[in-house]
């Protein structure tokens, strides 16, 4: 087993200060580990992988890992990722975002990235809250949950990320959790290798800003909650009473070319036409 941790150590930047900036029990480090393992499993070279992160806790992941890393502005990770992918389609571009990044301020970019199917993997670390700014509700905060900006309980509904990105046209949509790590590894590897735009939502608890205010006694309690309430989509669909249960797994698999590929094909067709005419 030692190879798991040692492998990750090989992918960390040795000139960065550790431990990670995240709070004790934050799942972000687990997602980072999962990301590294899936990239490693796919045999991708460090030089060919670009991590484009947004702002917030999730945005800090990029600095620790020895890929090409870009820490962008809040919500705009997908736009920069789109530019990189169009400029150099050979690169594996992974946009790492939080729920605020991806679904609130960057919601427009998300649906358009899905619609145009740019060949970028969106890894969304959903912790149901704005963590870095100190615990304000986000567009994934469940109805009824508490935060500093909904001290009486959230009145708004949360986004259904799967249905949102499915409707927008994404090539792949999946959800995993930081408790179900092996599955998360597999989901991520699948998403990175499928052409077009692929979204992986990773449920990762934020005890400091979300758990404490919503009845969890510790970070461990939140992991136990993930363990007990999440089950594979196949089993979820067979349930009669789905109250409090959450499906994980792959929800959408579409066979489409990434925009960068369609662009390249169009250029080729143009060149052929030109060559043929001459």
């Amino acid at each position: 087993m030692a190879e798991i941790t040692q492998l990750i150590h090989q992918y960390l930047r040795h000139n960065k200060k550790f431990p990670l900036v995240f709070c004790p029990g934050c799942g972000h480090g687990i997602v980072l580990g999962s990301l590294v393992r899936s990239v490693h499993a796919l045999g991708l070279a460090k030089d060919d992988v670009v991590i484009v992160a947004g702002i917030g806790c999730s945005g800090r992941i990029a600095a620790y890992v020895d890929f090409n890393t870009v820490h962008t502005t809040h919500g705009r990770a997908l736009t920069v990722a789109t530019g990189i992918k169009m400029a150099n389609p050979k690169l594996t571009v992974i946009a790492v975002m939080g729920d605020g990044d991806a679904f609130s301020i960057g919601g427009n970019h998300l649906i358009h990235a899905a619609r145009r199917n740019i060949g970028v993997t969106a890894l969304v670390l959903n912790n149901f809250i704005y963590g870095m700014t100190g615990g304000q509700c986000s567009s994934t905060t469940p109805e009824g949950a508490y935060s500093h900006t909904c001290p009486q309980g959230q009145l708004e509904s949360a986004f259904d990320i799967v249905e949102l990105t499915r409707a927008a046209g994404a090539a792949g949509v999946s959800r995993g959790t930081v408790y179900h790590v092996k599955e998360l590894d597999a989901l991520m590897a699948e998403a990175i290798s499928r052409p077009g735009f692929n979204l992986v939502e990773a449920l990762t608890p934020c005890f400091t800003q979300y758990g404490r205010g919503n009845g969890f006694k510790s970070a461990v309690e939140m992991f136990k909650w993930l363990k007990s309430s999440c089950l594979s989509v196949e089993r979820y669909e067979k349930l009669e009473d789905r109250t409090g249960k959450l499906p994980i797994g792959t929800f959408v698999r579409r066979d489409v070319d990434g925009l960068e590929t369609r662009w390249a094909n169009m250029r080729q067709a143009l060149a052929a036409k030109k060559g043929g005419a001459a």
């Binding site: 798991i4 550790f18 480090g29 687990i30 089950l231």
Partner: peptide
């Protein structure tokens, strides 16, 4: 423990003995 440590701080160096795998993680307890 290794993949679930958020801080990459745990290391298990296996010995020679037989190993029992963990039950699948999705199975709710």
């Amino acid at each position: 423990c290794e993949p679930h440590c958020p801080d990459f701080a745990v290391l298990v160096i296996p010995g020679e003995t037989d190993q029992t795998p963990c039950p699948p993680e999705t199975a709710p307890d």
